[in-house]
């Protein structure tokens, strides 16, 4: 027993070792994270206060933000984005919860069959999805129009499904839906399968109805998953871009412009207004943060 060891010194040495080891292990991740996520985020914030184009870089304060708020195109893009979010988030959540609750207690093979099927559109990638829907929705001779005609329904608008402001956004929402439910279904299946089933059984013994069991026993248990799904679906819907770029290019007449698509247009088409684009990017980030915060708040009070 050597009591003479300087314990505090030893502790300090071990803490220092932990610090060094910790940061050495963190170095690769930090390098990429700071260099290619944090730094550009900072740059986004900074350039949003500048009139920044190919030829110009002058500080203009909050002028870009003022312009965004006053721009009817931005407002329209915002409303379209909001419409996508408001329609797709609840439908995606409810639909995937339904699919998961029907399939989660099946034989493993069937469960993974359904899981894979609904995941396929996500994996196929936006480009393949866009191409096939372009084919299906083609004006006059696409299969949707011809099948409807065979049923005696001449529903196609004059400029085609994607060429008419009244239908274009709805088809974007539908296609987005097919590519959005894969992940929520996987998450819900795993949440339902990992539930505490003894509670469900106890409720059944006590004669609870199916509805009661669901809302009182199962729902609170899958609440964290629901919250996560709400947040990721909201973020994904807010960022809807690829389908728009590939299918409608924001048209006809800006009826399918979303914030993300508009940012892209403003920044990468002449006159390349990076500053203005960055300001709208910051606004989008703030809007998403607000939405996520509301969902967290709501989900927590709902739970407690």
């Amino acid at each position: 027993m050597q009591k003479s060891i300087d314990i505090s010194g030893q502790l300090r040495a071990s803490r220092r070792r932990e610090n060094i080891a910790g940061y050495v292990f963190m170095t690769p991740a930090l390098l990429f994270f700071v260099g290619f996520v944090i730094f550009p985020m900072g740059m986004c914030l900074v350039t949003s206060f500048f009139n920044y184009t190919m030829t110009d870089f002058t500080f203009i304060g909050i002028q870009n933000y003022v312009e965004a708020f006053n721009s009817p195109i931005f407002r329209r893009a915002f409303m379209n984005t909001l419409r996508i979010v408001v329609v797709s988030v609840p439908t995606v959540c409810l639909f995937s919860l339904w699919v998961a609750s029907v399939t989660y207690d099946m034989n493993d093979r069937y469960t993974s069959f359904f899981r894979i099927t609904f995941y396929l559109p996500v994996v196929m990638g936006s480009v393949a999805i866009a191409v096939v829907w372009k084919l299906i929705l083609r004006k006059d001779d696409g299969i949707l129009t011809t099948v409807l005609q065979m049923l005696g329904l001449n529903l196609q608008p004059r400029f085609g499904w994607l060429g008419s402001p009244s239908t274009a956004l709805w088809f974007i929402i539908t296609i987005l839906f097919t590519t959005s439910i894969g992940q929520p279904i996987v998450l819900y299946i795993s949440a339902l399968a990992n539930m505490d089933h003894s509670l469900v059984e106890a409720a059944n013994v006590d004669g609870a109805t199916k509805m009661q069991t669901f809302w009182r026993i199962k729902w609170p248990q899958i609440m964290p998953t629901t919250l996560y799904i709400l947040v990721i679906t909201t973020i994904n819907s807010f960022q809807c871009f690829a389908l728009i770029e590939l299918l409608t290019s924001g048209g006809p007449n800006h009826s399918t412009d979303t914030i993300m698509y508009y940012i892209y247009k403003v920044s990468l088409d002449a006159p390349y207004r990076y500053g203005y684009g960055s300001a709208m990017g910051v606004l989008l980030a703030i809007i998403i943060a607000i939405f996520s915060a509301i969902q967290f708040k709501y989900a927590q009070t709902d739970n407690g």
Partner: peptide, 24 residues
Amino acid sequence: LLFSLFVAAMALPKQVILIPLLKQ
């Protein structure tokens, strides 16, 4: 602090940083 930073960044929309990334 680092962990919170990682989580917070994950919640932010990835695409808004793409324009500054392009310049970078």
